[in-house]
Simulated assay, not measured.
Amino acid sequence: MQETIHHLSHIDLDGYSCQFIMQYTPYKITNYNANYGAEVKSKLDLILENIRKSKQSALILITDLNLTADESRWLNNEVRKMNDDKLDVKITLLDHHGSGQESAKKYEWYFLDESRCATKIMYDYTKENFEFNEPSWMEKFVNVVNAVDLWKLDEVENFEYGKVCMRLVNETRELNRVMFADQDNNYKLSLLKESTKYIEVDNAPVALDNKIHSIKKEFFKIDEDNTLDNLSTNYIVKLLGDKRDTNTIYYKGYRGFLSYGVGNTSIVGNGFLVAYPEYDFIVDVSYRGAMSLRANFNVSVAQIAKEWANGGGHPNAAGGRIMGFKEQYRYDKVKQQIETIINDKESRASVLEYKKED
């Protein structure tokens, strides 16, 4: 197999475990994750964009997500058009949710089996269709995920271990999966790999539960040990710094940094401004359009918040809410919205200044 695999999966234990299995194959894989609703189509749009840009053959692999009839029809048509343009693109969807029955009956690429979790379907499919360097513990891990995802209470050992693994994924929120999609995915898959070290030990659920905090810290640790909060903050500040080329904004001559859904602006924002003093302010926008701004005495973010969103606060710490903000699942779409606001405010200010001079 020469094509790149674009693997879209759900954001729970079952979804990430499907991607975890594929780590033990030799192919070039790009992972994407989505929750149900508009995010699924947004991520599929991104996959199609990436395939068109690369102009290379590709497999779109979708796991633990059912597509609606409209989504399936749209995706099938888009792939057909790319193949008409001499691109070799295939689709494989592996799922276990009964709500996908309509699409499964219509499209041969849509495989539905309600008797197994998506991870078990992925595992069996991988053994049959891909080169697979299977670790000795993989089948046990798959059975753990299957037990907890299908709520098999009679499989006590696997079920209890699966509950801890589920929490390992669900309560792993240190990284924002829109701003840091690749790093967040890698974080969760790394934690799942660590979890397999305890799968065969005595009282495995307790053993893993006792290790969760330390294995999280180990992922973020660069050199010296510290609290999880401090380690993850330093890690995030470095990630933000790596995005300066794409995330920089300007307002009235001031240089700012725009982040989306990162949160904890008092610590992360101030840490960023200390690490990168060439920036006058940082603004983090939440999924619902709430803004949190921080500065380091170079500009009044209270004034910026007032001008952008009728907000306010202190010169170095302010906030507000952007009316009409549309939640996005891609950073570039967020930046477009914010830059539209900036351009509008600057244009109005220029008009008012012109009228004063006139």
Rank of each mutant, 00 (worst) to 15 (best):
A181R: 02
A295H: 00
Q336W: 04
N296W: 06
Y187Q: 01
L59G: 08
M122S: 09
K306P: 02
D12M: 12
R255C: 08
K120G: 02
V274M: 06
E139N: 13
V89F: 07
P277C: 10
K28P: 09
F159Q: 02
Q56M: 10
Y125W: 15
F141M: 11
D242C: 00
E139D: 14
D332T: 09
E155P: 01
Y36R: 12
R73K: 15
I267V: 15
W109R: 01
N343K: 14
M1E: 12
F281S: 05
E49V: 06
N264Q: 10
M138H: 02
V169K: 02
L93V: 10
S42L: 01
D124V: 13
P205Q: 05
K28N: 15
N83T: 10
F220Y: 06
G271D: 00
N35T: 14
L93W: 01
A204Y: 01
T92M: 13
L191C: 07
A317K: 09
K243R: 12
Y24N: 07
F141A: 09
N66L: 12
E160N: 15
N77F: 11
F130E: 01
L192H: 03
Y32V: 09
L228M: 10
K221I: 15
V301I: 11
K221V: 13
I199K: 06
G312S: 08
K326F: 08
L258W: 00
A305G: 04
K326G: 03
T63M: 08
D182I: 09
L208R: 11
M291R: 02
L150N: 07
K86G: 05
Y27F: 06
K43I: 02
T227F: 10
V178E: 01
S42V: 10
A38L: 14
I199V: 12
I11S: 06
N170P: 00
K28A: 12
D14R: 13
M1S: 14
N296M: 13
R177M: 03
I304E: 05
G37D: 14
N31V: 03
G320L: 07
E114Q: 15
E128Q: 15
V274C: 02
T340H: 08
F257H: 09
R255M: 12
T126H: 07
